[in-house]
Design a protein around this nucleic acid. Structure first.
Lengths: 174, 174
DNA sequence: CGAAATCCATTCAACTTTGAACGACCTCGA
DNA sequence: TCGAGGTCGTTCAAAGTTGAATGGATTTCG
C-alpha cells in the first residue's frame, strides 16, 4: 500500500542538494557574522564598509548592485552607518540625483581592525575542506550559479565615459 | 613595488569558495522564495507549514530547532500564520509551558497546493547540475558542514519516554 | 517540602529586507 | 524647447531576525 510517496521525496537528489546548500550556507554565514556582531557591526554594515573600502566612494545605487540588495535597504544601512560617523554622504554636483557614500577615517579604521579577524573566521569555517575540495566546490557552484558579468558603475552602459574612479578588479562583498 | 597585497586576497581559495557559497545560496533561495511570495507566503511561513505538515503538531520550541531560528522569531511567525487561520495554538495540559502548533484544514490545503510547484522550482534552479555533480556537491557540503544528529522532540534527552507522536523520518524544512 | 535551576513562550528594541509610492532630477525625441 | 519616460534616493508598511528581559511552569536537589 503506497509507501512510494513517502520514500520518493527523501531520495530526490536535486531537492536534497538544494536543502543542504541553503542550510550549510546559512549556518556558516551565521557563524561568521557572529564574530562581526561582537565588534558591533551587522553583516550588512560590514559588507557596505567592505565594498567602500575596496572600491572607494560609491553611489548608493552601485552599493545596492554589489550587495544584491534593494535601494531602500541601502538607504537604511547607510543611515545607520552615518549615525555612527563611519561614512558620509556627498551629493554629486554633476548629477544631483546621485549620493556618493564615502568612508570616514573612523570607518576605515574600524574596517581595517575588523577585516583580518573576519577573514580568519572564514578560513576557520572552511578549513574542513582541502584545497582540492575547495576548488571542486567552487567549480560546482560556478556551474550552478555562474558569476554575473562585471557590474558597471553609475549605470552608464557603454563607452566608459569619465571614469572618475579608475576601474578596479571586481570583488564580492562578504 | 608591493603589488603583492592587492593580489593575495583574490587568490585566497577558502575565501573565494566561501563567498561563492554564500552568494549562490542567497541567489537561489531568493529565486525559489519569489515563487512562494506570489502565493502570499513568506519563506519562513512556508518552512513552518512544511515542518508541521510533515511531522504533525509541534511545540514551538521544536519548530525553532528544526528551522534553526530563535524562539522569539517563531512566536512572531506563528502569530502571522494564526492571524490567517492557517494554524492554531493549543496549550499542552500536561506541561503548561508548552504550546503546540497545529495546522488547520486551510493550512493543510494551502500547503498542499503550494508544495508541488515549490519542489518544481527547486528542481528548476538545480537543473544546471547533473546527477553526478549533485552528488558531488552534496558530499562536499556534508564534509564542510555535517548534518547535525537527529533532533529530539520536547528536549527530553534520553529513553524516549511517552513518544506521543511516533517518531518520523527527519526532514529539513526548505 | 521548598528553593534553585531550568525551560517555555512572549515581549521589546534594534536592525534587516522587500516592494510600492513618491519627489527630485536627467535624457531623449518630437 | 518641452514633455514623457526613466533613474536615484527616500519613506513607509509589513514581515523577519536576534538577543535580552520577563513571567509562568516544571524539575531537581538539598
Amino acid at each position: 500500500m503506497e509507501t512510494t510517496k513517502d520514500q520518493q521525496q527523501i531520495q530526490d537528489l536535486p531537492i536534497a542538494a538544494y536543502v543542504k546548500l541553503i542550510r550549510s550556507a546559512e549556518a556558516l554565514h551565521a557563524e561568521v557574522s557572529r564574530g562581526l556582531a561582537s565588534e558591533g557591526l551587522t553583516a550588512s554594515q560590514f559588507s557596505a564598509l567592505k565594498v567602500l573600502r575596496l572600491r572607494g566612494p560609491l553611489a548608493q545605487r552601485d552599493i545596492a548592485n554589489y550587495l544584491v540588495k534593494t535601494g531602500g535597504n541601502i538607504t537604511v544601512v547607510v543611515d545607520n552607518l552615518e549615525h555612527r560617523n563611519l561614512v558620509v554622504r556627498i551629493r554629486d554636483t554633476e548629477d544631483r540625483r546621485i549620493v556618493f557614500v564615502k568612508l570616514t577615517p573612523e570607518g576605515e579604521q574600524i574596517f581595517d581592525r575588523v577585516y583580518g579577524p573576519h577573514l580568519d573566521r572564514i578560513r576557520g569555517v572552511m578549513s574542513a575542506l582541502s584545497d582540492k575540495s575547495l576548488n571542486q566546490l567552487t567549480e560546482l557552484l560556478e556551474e550552478l550559479y555562474p558569476s554575473p558579468a562585471e557590474p558597471l558603475c553609475y549605470g552608464r552602459s557603454e563607452e566608459a565615459d569619465k571614469p572618475k574612479k579608475k576601474g578596479r578588479t571586481p570583488s564580492a562583498a562578504y
